[in-house]
């Protein structure tokens, strides 16, 4: 065994926090690595990069990242990040959190931050259920799926997240799966460098809870499923990208537009006096 070898991501993680809490077969480790890769490649000074999350399995990522990191309350990463970004526009603020956190309890914040075009980046790990609490259905769970709170099959229609993001005003919208590591990392890099509210959905396996109850096999089986059933369709109408339990997964970049951000649209009062932002 060679213990002296340095992992390429070592400088970006808090090594003393390893091992992480994620289950074997979970997509989060891979998704997180793609984020770190993008962070590194983006060239943004790491001292100016901030990662924020709410609660859930994905929400643990900030605690493992060796940059300024804020693990907030369930659903509230977006307004917290909004405050960070608006108070110090030099910061590059990214939210790394789950589908339940961002779209169920936090859904209202998502649509409004997108509408305002707050210059923050959202990476949403969609594993179709509440993994941390043991696998309940959520706002993205496909119709008919079994979870601990939908024992007869989920009877609620799910959100199509990329459609919600596009309709709410996000300037960049993409979807990938955990298997698309290179495309995902370069998409995250693109989003980090893009001005405005960006949204990337990552379809990610949760074999322990969602996969097991819906006979999707081990984590590796889910990745194979993604490989065989994903279709890249850039710039199609995200309305056409609905997801089902056993159907195809449309991935790609759907939106990439430019429009003024919340800060760009701030009133410009001429003849200002000397009252610069007071940092404490």
């Amino acid at each position: 065994m060679i213990h002296s070898e340095v992992h390429p991501m070592d400088s970006l993680i808090r090594k003393d926090r390893m091992p992480h809490i994620w289950c074997s077969g979970c997509g989060l480790g891979t998704n997180f690595t793609c984020y770190l890769e993008a962070l590194k490649k983006s060239g943004i000074p790491l001292d100016k990069c901030v990662i924020v999350s709410g609660i859930g399995c994905a929400g643990r990522a900030p605690g493992y990242t060796n940059i300024d990191s804020y693990h907030t309350t369930h659903g509230r990463a977006i307004p917290f990040a909004t405050g960070l970004k608006l108070a110090n526009p030099e910061l590059s603020v990214t939210i790394f959190s789950g589908d339940g956190d961002l779209f169920a309890i936090g859904g209202n914040h998502f649509i409004h931050a997108a509408r305002r075009n707050i210059d923050i980046n959202i990476i949403c790990i969609n594993n179709f259920n509440y993994g941390m609490t043991g696998g309940q259905f959520g706002s993205t769970t496909p119709l008919g799926s079994k979870t601990t709170t939908s024992p007869y099959g989920n009877y609620e229609h799910p959100f199509n997240l990329v459609y919600v993001a596009a309709a709410s005003g996000a300037v960049y919208v993409a979807r990938w799966t955990t298997i698309h590591v290179r495309r995902l990392a370069s998409s995250i890099e693109e989003a980090l460098l893009k001005k405005g509210f960006t949204f990337i959905e990552i379809i990610s396996p949760c074999p322990t809870n969602f996969g097991r109850r819906n006979k999707l096999g081990e984590g590796l089986d889910e990745l194979k499923y993604y490989r065989n059933h994903s279709i890249i369709k850039h710039f199609i109408d995200p309305k056409e990208a609905d997801l089902t339990l056993n159907g195809e997964i449309i991935v790609g970049k759907f939106v990439d537009i430019d429009k003024p951000t919340f800060l760009d649209n701030q009133p410009d009062l001429s003849q200002k006096q000397d009252n610069k932002v007071t940092k404490t």
């Binding site: 924020v52 405050g83 970004k85 007071t278």
Partner: peptide, 17 residues
């Protein structure tokens, strides 16, 4: 809910909120 979180975030960036 958002208002309370936003002021906490802004304060973490060093601005009185």
């Amino acid at each position: 809910i958002a208002s309370m979180n936003a002021i906490l975030g802004a304060s973490c960036a060093g601005v009185k909120s």
